[in-house]
Design a protein around this nucleic acid. Structure first.
Length: 216
DNA sequence: GGTGTGATCGTA
DNA sequence: ACGATCACACCA
């Protein structure tokens, strides 16, 4: 099918230059667009996110300092951090923070927002082709590994500048929810204290992941 | 609806 | 060894 036109204003660097816990809920309902050389224009609407802080957050990849794997987190905000996990899945994050070093913040704050789920907007046929096991369109992008697979994002896209492309984040005028759903983060051992309710989602949205924060 | 488990490999 | 996970089996 022909992809719908995707309109909106590309978010500027300044949008990302804030604490990941402030940025995360602001990303809800924003459009993520991938101008994929193989599949054409793919677009999704972000419906579930998690915030990861830097050196103070034991669940963050940045907690134990800079390594080749997490180097993008230590760079400027507004870039895509992609990592490989469980031997088979890629996950996408947006780098947050001011990216600047100071005495209390060696290496910069190295914070990021994990994109956990989105709703397909354009290029759905290409997403179905990339995810033949999805029985249902709601399974195309309703989880961090699923989302990366549907969008054709892997380690090659680590570090791309989201203010330039081929991946971009657009504001098309749909506001974030006034009262987002909120809980502790999913799939962690560390950093799921009751205070760390750093997962947000769009209430009632079918493409929010089924994952539940693991309890004790 | 739910719960349990194997897959699979880069990273530390 | 162990994941910021997924899909499938099985039970209900």
């Amino acid at each position: 099918m022909s992809s719908e036109s995707v309109k909106g204003r590309t978010l500027a660097r300044s949008f990302y230059r804030r604490d990941s816990r402030e940025l995360a809920p602001m990303l809800l309902n924003k459009l993520l667009v991938h101008d994929d050389p193989a599949a054409g224009r793919l677009a999704v609407r972000i419906v579930e996110v998690e915030a990861y802080a830097g050196s103070t957050d034991p669940a963050s990849h940045a907690y134990r300092g800079r390594t080749p794997r997490n180097a993008t987190m230590f760079g400027p905000p507004g870039h895509l951090y992609v990592y490989f996990t469980y031997g088979m899945h890629f996950c996408m994050n947006i780098v947050a923070g001011d990216g600047e070093e100071d005495a209390t913040d060696p290496g910069g704050d190295a914070s990021a927002v994990l994109l956990r789920a989105a709703a397909p907007v354009a290029g759905i046929d290409a997403m179905r082709a990339r995810r033949p096991k999805a029985r249902h369109d709601r399974d195309l992008t309703s989880g961090p590994g699923r989302l990366a697979q549907a969008l054709g994002v892997a380690r090659a896209q680590d570090g791309v500048d989201l203010t330039r492309g081929p991946l971009r984040v657009l504001d098309d005028g749909v506001e974030p929810p006034r009262r987002p759903g909120r809980s502790t983060r999913v799939g962690l051992r560390e950093g799921r204290g009751d205070r760390d309710r750093w997962r947000w989602w769009v209430p009632g949205e079918a493409n929010v992941s089924r994952a539940k924060p693991s309890g004790g």
